[in-house]
Design a protein around this nucleic acid. Structure first.
Length: 482
DNA sequence: ACTCAAGGCCAG
DNA sequence: CTGGCCTTGAGT
């Protein structure tokens, strides 16, 4: 009955094999993210307001030659990534819509527009202001709260908010020439990349901007119900939960090999889903791709745990604190009892792998992880997080920078500003009346984040990325949508 | 030759 | 620093 135990060696071969493969998968993750950056970044040199460090050579993959097998795997999945990168753009409709709607009015201040300037239809004033700002590498600071309204009358009251609105309206710092050469036209590449990215999130952004044009606490990223609503709609938690690698083909008795192979592909799938999610974020275009790469690389494990945890809480409604009796019979994850979850993992792992896995092996390999995940579930379920709060927490988690971040300072400031914004948005949401006595405070949620971080390090250490998903969803019930 | 988006000039 | 007006020059 127990194939694994037949092995003469003391260590369980199944898990050893997996761990090796999954370790390679972690490296693959890095490569994917780097690859994402290289395909998103135009090959030209890009100068930001602050003197950019040459770290932009990230697209040039300065590292030494990668391992052959990893390269091969990378190449094989490149196609899928390219589809992720949004080739399904509608440049025509975008262009015409923009040119029509912005033909006469400056999109920044509402003054009379004199045409397209640096990517947006603006007046001479905003054009000149943007040019001087970029040329002189100006860094402005808002004396208020980054929420100044910019119109024709008061556009000179706050340079910081004016510049931010320029950016949010699509003006590109890259379009200001470093060599100051007059005349001619900028290469199409400057705008094509931007337009491609913008078209992906155009729907979201336009929607938000229509609703919140008047009162926006933050120019490029409006706060409010619409922002949260979009985030909730874009979240696609089901896609992350219904990982193909965890599905069971009911008709065929899976061999061990394909099952293992599928498990090792889960890293790919997670990256795919997270990249997809990142691209739908309203602030996607506000940050350079290397920033997204950096953030995803650092935070993906936390995002996985958060997503799985939220899914478990939303599906199983953790209102029964005493789950001691639901061992064996029930097929539900426990929020308190890690032994239940270990048993559950054993069952489901055996199911996916198509053979019995001894409990002690599961306990040995995933015990610490299950322990941490169960603790995390318990504390997370106490927060009673709403879908709206969940997407805010997710954004806050992604936008958490380590102290030793290697990003450019201007980017760090931007990321921090964005994170602050989502914290405020979350706070506003929590204070909203109508919810059934939201007792959870912002401080409670923020206090929980270190716990998430701690659990993520365990997840990274174990390399069994799929454990949270396997625990929170029965592989038998995974949706087959292909 | 015309267009249009980039840079420059300079009175306010 | 601002912004209206002028000059440039590749693309059409």
């Amino acid at each position: 009955m127990d194939v694994v135990a037949d092995s003469t060696t003391g260590t369980p071969p199944v898990f050893d094999h997996e761990n090796l493969a999954l370790q390679a998968q972690t490296n693959l993750l890095q490569l994917y993210l780097t690859h994402l950056a290289s395909t998103m970044v135009p090959p030209m040199k890009i100068e930001m307001r602050e003197p950019m460090t040459p770290s932009f050579s990230l697209s040039g993959s300065p590292n030494s030659e990668t391992d052959d097998s990893l390269s091969a795997a990378l190449v094989s999945s490149t196609k899928a990534l390219f589809t992720l990168l949004g080739t399904n753009t509608t440049p025509d409709s975008t262009a015409t819509a923009v040119s029509k709607s912005n033909n006469k009015i400056c999109s920044v201040c509402g003054d009379k527009s004199t045409g397209l300037h640096y990517g947006a239809s603006t007046c001479e004033g905003c054009k000149g202001f943007f040019k001087r700002s970029v040329q002189n590498k100006k860094v402005y600071h808002c004396s208020q709260e980054n929420c100044c309204e910019i119109d024709k009358q008061n556009r000179n009251r706050c340079q910081s908010c004016r510049f931010r609105k320029c950016i949010s309206k699509g003006m590109l710092t890259e379009a200001v020439r470093e060599d100051r050469m007059p005349g001619g036209r900028n290469g199409n590449s400057i705008y094509s990349n931007y337009k491609q990215r913008r078209s992906i999130i155009r729907k979201t952004k336009d929607y938000i901007e229509e609703e919140l044009e008047e009162r926006r606490p933050f120019q490029s990223l409006p706060s409010g119900k619409k922002l949260i609503k979009e985030l909730v709609e874009m979240d696609c938690l089901d896609r992350l939960i219904n990982l193909r690698g965890l599905r069971i083909n009911p008709s065929t008795n899976c061999d061990i090999a394909p099952a293992c192979k599928r498990l090792t592909r889960i890293g790919d799938e997670i990256v795919e889903q997270l990249v997809e999610w990142t691209k739908t974020l309203p602030f996607f275009e506000e940050l350079p791709v290397e920033a997204h790469t950096h953030l995803l690389t650092q935070r993906w494990a936390e995002l996985v745990l958060l997503s799985a945890g939220y899914y478990a809480c939303s599906v199983f409604t953790p209102d029964s604190p005493d789950t001691t009796e639901m061992i064996d019979e029930t097929d539900e994850i426990s929020f308190t009892n890690e032994q239940v979850n270990l048993r559950l993992l054993q069952n489901r792992l055996s199911l996916v792998l198509g053979k019995d896995i001894p409990f002690e092996h599961v306990s040995k390999e995933a015990g610490v992880l299950v322990h941490q995940f169960t603790l995390l579930l318990k504390s997370f379920s106490n927060l009673k997080v709403s879908p709206e709060a969940y997407v805010c927490i997710k954004a806050i988690t992604l936008l958490h920078l380590s102290a030793d971040s290697t990003l450019d300072k201007s980017i760090i400031d931007k990321v921090n500003t964005l994170q602050d914004h989502f914290v405020k948005t979350l706070q506003i949401h929590l204070h909203q009346p109508g919810e059934d006595q939201q007792t959870t405070s912002l401080a409670q949620i923020l206090d929980w984040l270190p716990e998430l971080r701690k659990a993520s390090s365990v997840l990274l250490h174990s390399k069994m990325f799929y454990v949270p998903f396997l625990l929170c969803k029965n592989p038998r019930r995974l949706v087959f949508d292909e």
